[in-house]
């Protein structure tokens, strides 16, 4: 039994380890080990395309995760006091957002926004005071919009789980002691759900940072890091990809372990 578990862990981590190992490979060929070197990290980090893509990924991830945490928490808190059809409708939207394949979210957002922009742009040009009216097009904003939608659903689920595990007596006691609803929220509820919000933020950022399929459709002329990696893989396996892959994995591993620790520690309290 223990042997089996070791085998499964090896299965889970060997491929990751191989990528990391070969990223330190000094040789030009991706598949023969020829001594230790950090040169592929240097190559990757001095490649302007990689740095552009990295910047886009980080900017989109931070904005999407911030918006998702903010709006998601607001919704989760409000939903506590909402019953009936509004609640049912909201639950359904969260359910659909999580269940629908990412690829369908990608194509749906693409055709809906492109069609909407086609209608809005002439109109915008007509009412714009100067000659050079801005053109709406697919790019960072559409990407942030799509990522925020999906990750907001995640945040609502995580924060709501935390809220439902919370002792109602605490907020009632606070109200009985004449705290305003705002004070109760800031001094009682918020500290209790803060770990869930933070974990939701980290998961949202990780999702956005790692997402390929939605970005593939929605990013327009922008390139995120996963899109760059995907198009490079199609041109062949290179040590540079190994280095980028190792960095991407390292970033998400660190963020995830932090998120897990925050969630679990707060559960045990």
């Amino acid at each position: 039994m223990r042997l089996y578990a070791i085998f499964v862990y090896l299965f889970l981590y060997t491929p990751i380890a191989i990528i990391a190992l070969f990223s330190f490979n000094a040789g030009r060929h991706a598949s023969q080990l020829q001594g230790f070197s950090l040169k592929w990290y240097g190559t990757a980090l001095s490649n302007p395309f990689v740095m552009d893509a990295l910047e886009t990924s980080i900017v989109v991830g931070l904005i999407a995760a911030t918006l998702a945490s903010l709006f998601g928490t607001m919704a989760a808190v409000a939903l506590q006091g909402v019953r009936g059809p509004v609640r049912a409708l909201f639950d359904m939207m969260i359910y659909v957002a999580v269940m629908i394949p990412g690829i369908v979210i990608g194509i749906a957002t693409l055709i809906a926004l492109v069609t909407a922009f086609d209608h809005l742009n002439p109109w915008l040009a007509a009412i714009w005071p100067t000659q050079s009216a801005p053109q709406l097009s697919m790019g960072k904003l559409s990407l942030i919009g799509a990522h925020t939608m999906f990750t907001m659903a995640l945040v609502i689920i995580i924060v709501r789980a935390r809220l439902s595990g919370m002792d109602r007596a605490l907020t009632e006691a606070s109200a009985d002691l004449y705290a305003t609803p705002m004070t109760t929220f800031l001094r009682v509820t918020l500290p209790l759900i803060a770990p869930a919000i933070l974990a939701g933020f980290l998961l949202s950022f990780t999702f956005s940072f790692d997402d390929f399929i939605i970005a593939f459709f929605v990013a327009g002329s922008e390139t995120t890091l996963p899109i760059y990696v995907f198009s490079s893989i199609r041109r062949g396996v290179t040590p540079e990809i190994n280095a980028i892959g190792t960095m991407v994995l390292a970033v998400s591993l660190v963020l995830l372990i932090i998120a897990q620790l925050i969630l679990r520690r707060s559960d045990n309290r």
Binding site: I16, D210, F212, V237, G245
Partner: peptide, 27 residues
């Protein structure tokens, strides 16, 4: 041990699938 199982799921599926191109590929 549980965290160790779950964590890979949240890392890039792109990079993890790419690792298998490496392992199953010709070399």
């Amino acid at each position: 041990l549980l965290v160790l199982v779950i964590v890979p799921f949240w890392t890039s599926i792109l990079i993890r699938s790419y690792a298998w191109i490496f392992i199953l590929g010709g070399r």
